[in-house]
Design a protein around this nucleic acid. Structure first.
Lengths: 240, 240
DNA sequence: TGTACATCAGTGAACGCGCGTTCACTGATGTAC
DNA sequence: TGTACATCAGTGAACGCGCGTTCACTGATGTAC
């Protein structure tokens, strides 16, 4: 059996990452320490270097895992349900993000919190980092295809127009500027609200954060994925 | 002159905080070190303890200062202009927040980034922390008074209703649930977008972050502070 | 199938550095009579 | 106004702890003939 050593190696690598995550949960990502992990592992500190050549490489692995988990959760959430039910899809995807973040607050902080000083993410992280975004862009493309119009219409300036065109070209999607911009708004609104909840900004203000998140996500979804054409009509009905 | 010693003391206290801020800018808040500050100051490390009884007390002072600076910037920005021009007021206030955050990224991270593990903010921080929010609530109250309606109408669930009522009672303001919720959305959207920009989430995506922020803030403002009654009409004009 | 060699995991010691906090102390600045 | 005492800022040494990374090494696991 050729793979024995390899299998043990893979297991230990996974265990190191698991311990690192547990350590992040209590100490924070900045004070993630190879020595402490080795201690937990019952190994001598230098042994960890067989698995990760430096602390930053371990961090990178954790960041990639986190992006992948979040992205995969979003993909799974969007794999079910009627393709045309965009508000439903948005609700499932945003819920998946919130659920993952609540379950993995340190991993969430690692990718959406304050950048770790002295650490520069290598290029390997870019792919996993875009995974969630790709799901969202799928929703936007479908909304554009259904000729939905955001509740608030804003036009980008010249520089942002160029940026949006570049993304269109890169990903080969067909999303008009207005929808694209509105999509970025709810993207930032989604993670803004998750950060506010997780980082304690609504402590002493909001009691039931789950209920609060639900209404927030609903409001965000309605900004882009409301009825076709005059979404205001739908809002008026709701209001009456 | 009785105040000589006191004056020197105040100056040194200020200088310690200034050095601490400079240190945060390069090392991050988590690795803020009293010893390094003492070194920069040309003093022995134990001398700093005459001014701040512990590292956490220094952190607290920095947090309070940061909240106060942000709050004051918002208050100043909202002190000018027509009271009824809510979109203008929002633009000035949100710009003030962004400008302050760009100029003081580490201070911004300190209050809106990942919480520092092991540090619990004492009650002294609550007052300054609400300063910005109070400005925003002023806008919301005025919007409600002018009978503006948010572009997207969502109703809070029972628990959030109670929370909102508590805030109304505490602050003595008259803002309906729907406006209040929409206000919280743009509050989270504002700082969500600032965090995305400052924490590098839109790197390689957005080139001109100032232009991007401007359109973001505009979109947020239009969600709450559009024309009275049927704000959709205004959007339709814009769209045509 | 059995032996010789190469690969690799983990050890243990060391380098050089950092930190927060305490404590007894000197000497200067302020205060009360 | 001048002296005696109290207050306070800053010193220097120490305690006890942490960290990332390197390096020569032992001994076990895998590989080639």
């Amino acid at each position: 059996m050729a793979g024995l050593r390899e299998r043990v190696r893979a297991e230990l690598t996974a265990e190191i990452k698991a311990l690192a995550r547990r350590q992040m949960a209590t100490e924070g990502a900045t004070s993630l320490s190879l020595r402490a992990i080795a201690r937990d592992l019952g190994m001598v500190s230098s042994a960890v270097y067989r698995y990760f050549p430096s602390r930053d490489d371990l961090l990178t692995a954790l960041i990639i895992d986190s992006y992948n988990e979040l992205g995969e959760a979003a993909e799974r959430a969007d794999a079910v349900g009627d393709r045309d039910d965009l508000r439903g899809r948005w609700r499932r995807v945003s819920d998946a993000a919130f659920t993952w973040a609540k379950a993995n607050p340190s991993e969430y902080s690692l990718i959406f919190g304050t950048p770790i000083p002295g650490y520069a993410a290598p290029n390997d992280t870019i792919g996993p980092a875009t995974r969630f975004t790709v799901v969202l862009i799928g929703l936007l493309a479908h909304a554009a295809h259904l000729r939905m119009r955001p509740a608030v219409i804003v036009e980008p300036g010249p520089s942002v127009q160029v940026d949006l065109q570049r993304i269109r070209d890169t990903l080969g999607v067909d999303i008009d500027d207005v929808t694209f911009l509105a999509g970025m708004q709810i993207w930032m609104g989604l993670f803004g609200s998750i950060s506010f909840i997780l980082f304690g900004q609504v402590n002493n203000v909001i009691t039931d954060v789950d209920e609060f998140f639900a209404v927030t996500a609903e409001a965000l979804g309605r900004q882009v994925f409301d009825v076709t054409g005059t979404s205001r009509a739908g809002a008026d009905v709701e209001r009456a």
